[in-house]
Computed example of a mutant assay.
Amino acid sequence: MEEIYNTYRPEGFGTVTPYIFAEDPVKLIQFLTLGLKAEELQRTKDPKTGDITNCILRLGHSCLMVSRARPPFTGMKSSFYLYVDDVDIMHELAIKAGAREVFSPADMPYRDRQSGIQDMEGNYWWISKRLEQSEY
Rank of each mutant, 00 (worst) to 15 (best):
His91Ser: 13
Glu92Cys: 14
Gly98Val: 08
Ser104Gly: 13
Ile127Glu: 02
Val87Tyr: 06
Gln114Leu: 09
Ile95Arg: 12
Leu57Glu: 10
Gly50Asn: 02
Trp125Met: 09
Arg43Pro: 01
Val84Trp: 08
Gly98Asn: 07
Ser78His: 11
Leu64Ile: 13
Ser128Ile: 04
Arg68Trp: 00
His61Ile: 06
Met120Glu: 02
Val102Ala: 09
Ile95Asn: 09
Tyr83Asp: 00
Ala94Gly: 13
Met90Ala: 12
Phe80Asp: 03
Val102Asn: 10
Cys55Ile: 03
Ile52Ser: 08
Arg58Ser: 12
Thr53Glu: 02
Glu121Gly: 13
Asn54Trp: 06
Leu64Asn: 04
Phe103Gln: 04
Ser104Thr: 15
Leu131Lys: 01
Ser104Arg: 14
Arg113Ala: 13
Arg58Gln: 15
Lys96Val: 08
Asp46Asn: 15
Ile56Asp: 08
Pro47Gly: 02
Gln114Asp: 04
Asp88Ile: 12
Lys48Arg: 07
Pro71Cys: 04
Gly116Ala: 09
Pro72Ile: 06
Pro109Thr: 01
Ala69Cys: 10
Tyr124Asp: 12
Ser128Leu: 07
Leu64Pro: 08
Asp51Ala: 14
Thr53Pro: 00
Gly75Arg: 13
Asp112Gly: 00
Thr53Gly: 08
Ser62Arg: 05
Met76Arg: 14
Phe80Gly: 05
Cys55Met: 05
Leu131Thr: 02
Leu131Trp: 01
Arg130Pro: 03
Glu101Trp: 02
Thr53Lys: 11
Glu92Tyr: 10
Cys55Leu: 01
Phe73Pro: 01
Pro109Asn: 04
His91Asp: 14
Gln114Thr: 11
Val102Ser: 11
Asp119Leu: 12
Asp85Met: 06
Arg68Glu: 03
Cys63Arg: 12
Asp85Phe: 07
Trp126Asp: 06
Arg111Gly: 00
Met76Gly: 14
Ser79Phe: 15
Leu82Val: 14
Asp112Tyr: 05
Ile89Lys: 14
Gln114Pro: 00
Phe103Arg: 07
Gly122Val: 09
Tyr81Glu: 05
Gly75Cys: 09
Val66Cys: 09
Tyr81Gly: 05
Pro71Asn: 09
Asp46Leu: 08
Tyr83Gln: 05
Asn54Leu: 08
Leu93Val: 07
Leu59Pro: 11
Ala106Ser: 11
Ser62Lys: 04
Leu93Cys: 15
Lys45Gln: 02
Gly60Tyr: 02
Asp85Gly: 14
Leu59Ser: 05
Glu92Met: 14
